[in-house]
Simulated assay, not measured.
Amino acid sequence: MSSQKGPPKGKPPASGGRPRTGARVAAVQALFQSEQAGENPESVIAEFVRHRLGPNAAEDSYGEGRIPEVDAKLFARIVRTAAAQIESLDETIGKSLAKDWPLEKLDPVLRALLRAAAAEFATPKDPPARVVINEYLDIANGFFLGDEPRFANGVLDALARAYRADEFAPVPSAPAPRG
């Protein structure tokens, strides 16, 4: 899986004026950068806050990689949760993949996206799981041209059900009115 539009340091998917979406895009990029460069997640968070996030982000080599509208607290929470729980998140993600397709075989951006989503699923239930799925699916469509978004959709659904099964429990139907 590698029909990626470009590395996350390029132009990120647009957040469309939605700060929470901007936070998720930035979290995927930060997790990618942390893994690829072997950088400490706290250092990456600080770098992003200083150089890439918000309307006043420093003009530097990132240029187009800036994300003007972002919920910085959500961004930091996603990255910190993913970093702190990476082993358990990866284990859960791995259970959602085909046995012959281990996590290490995934495109690194897709891996970062799944880790960010899993970190959100593993935290309190706001927003609802279906919202998290839709947000990361939009992000996947921004980063990839090929089959990755469809693949991500299946894995995101499996992760949501693993972490928040109660949100997917069937709703008991009301008894039929007697007439």
Rank of each mutant, 00 (worst) to 15 (best):
N153L: 10
I67S: 08
Q29W: 11
V132D: 04
L89I: 11
S43V: 14
R66D: 10
S2V: 04
A76P: 03
G6C: 07
P68R: 09
V79F: 03
F48R: 02
E35N: 04
L31P: 03
A118K: 00
N56S: 15
A57L: 14
H51R: 12
V70R: 05
F144V: 04
P128Q: 12
A129F: 05
A118F: 06
K11Q: 09
L156H: 01
E91R: 14
I67G: 02
V44K: 06
R18S: 10
H51F: 10
R66S: 14
T92E: 13
G6N: 07
A26K: 07
G6I: 04
P128A: 13
R80D: 07
A118H: 02
P172C: 09
L110E: 02
G63T: 02
D71E: 08
R130L: 14
I86D: 08
D147Q: 14
D138C: 01
A162T: 13
R161S: 00
A37C: 07
P41R: 05
A57E: 14
S96R: 08
E64Q: 15
E120P: 05
S88V: 15
P68A: 14
K9H: 12
K11S: 08
G17Q: 12
D90A: 01
A76N: 06
P68F: 02
K11V: 10
R20V: 01
A30P: 07
R66E: 11
D126Y: 06
E120T: 09
W101G: 07
A72W: 05
S43E: 15
I78P: 06
S88H: 15
G16A: 08
S61H: 11
D157W: 11
F143G: 03
P102E: 02
E59P: 10
A82H: 06
K125W: 08
F168W: 12
S61L: 07
G179S: 15
D157E: 12
L113T: 07
S2K: 07
A82W: 00
P128K: 13
V25L: 09
L145I: 11
D71W: 06
A162D: 12
A27Q: 01
A72Y: 04
T123V: 13
R150H: 08
R115P: 00
I86P: 01
R24Y: 03
A165D: 11
F168Q: 11
A76Q: 03
M1H: 03
S61D: 14
I67F: 10
P68G: 12
V132R: 04
R20P: 05
V171Q: 15
S96D: 01
E135G: 08
